[in-house]
Design a binder for these strands. Structure first.
Ligand SMILES: [Mn+2]
Ligand SMILES: [Mn+2]
Ligand SMILES: [Zn+2]
Ligand SMILES: [Zn+2]
Lengths: 142, 142
DNA sequence: GTATCAGGTGAAAATGATTTTCATTATCAG
DNA sequence: CTGATAATGAAAATCATTTTCACCTGATAC
């Protein structure tokens, strides 16, 4: 798997490119949809043995700040991470086995149709908007 | 604030109605949109001093199982809780100050319009579907 | 009303995910 | 090639949440 373009994007953030960061990037690419830090660690260890879990967390945080990675919380308290920059998408989370699938449309009706089309039985959904409230958009706010 | 109807619903779940549970219910009613366990604890303590945080967690879990309360994860790892049974709704989460507002429509376009109408600047959204994947709907699975 | 006892509570300790600290190592601009 | 400094790993700290366990109390039966 070719990590060169990702490596370039990561370096553009200003940081150094190390073997461990490359391993995390590759693991993210290989794992695909929303793995946990632990899962990323396990996979990245195959590429760079001795890689510490702490480094994985730090790396993910760094990448997240550079916009290379997004952290998301689905149902449980553990964070999940995925590479940004692909097409915008959402997820189908199975309440029974926990598998996560990607969905590339993002409107409710279309999404539900898409979910049903792949045999997924939708029982609930979550939809949140993030941004800045009126007060925080006022001068002197950030 | 009248907690009687909630008390009735809670008892319907089969459990006992204690002063601490009543305090948690009242705190949930008073706090409104998606408070954390800690916030609920602080508020409920005004009603029933000596109430332990552990009891708050246990109570919320119990209520969640009875469908009286819903736990959700927004941006961070801490769980947030809110009374169910009101109309289905979503949230506007301010990235700057963290305030959470309710939104009662749930379709993307309408939601974004509603958000804009209240001066909220949307920069991102999250939308997830939960349910059962094809594999888990097959016989012998649950 | 009073006894009964399973369900509920609180304090402390355990857990699990994530973050911080700090001494050591390695990247890369010059 | 070398030095400045960013990154790493191990251990310890932190934070939210859960578990344990001895004690308490609400709800039903008498
Ligand atoms: Mn995905
Ligand atoms: Mn709400
Ligand atoms: Zn499944
Ligand atoms: Zn705000």
């Amino acid at each position: 798997m070719n990590t060169a373009p990702l490596t370039r994007r990561a370096r553009a953030g200003g940081g150094r490119m190390t073997a461990q960061r490359r391993a995390v990037l590759q693991a993210l690419q290989e794992l695909g949809c929303a793995p946990t830090a632990e899962e990323i660690h396990t996979r990245a260890r195959h590429i760079r043995s001795g890689l510490g879990l702490v480094t994985v967390y730090r790396t993910l945080e760094t990448f997240a700040q550079e916009g290379l990675v997004q952290r998301l919380f689905l149902d449980d308290a553990r964070g999940r991470y995925e590479l940004m920059g692909g097409r915008h998408h959402h997820h189908l989370v199975c309440l029974s086995c926990g598998t996560i699938q990607s969905l590339n449309r993002c409107f409710l009706a279309a999404a539900e149709r898409a979910a049903r089309a792949r045999g997924f039985k939708v029982t609930a959904h979550r939809f949140e908007l993030f941004g800045y409230c009126r007060r925080c958009q006022a001068p002197a706010a950030r």
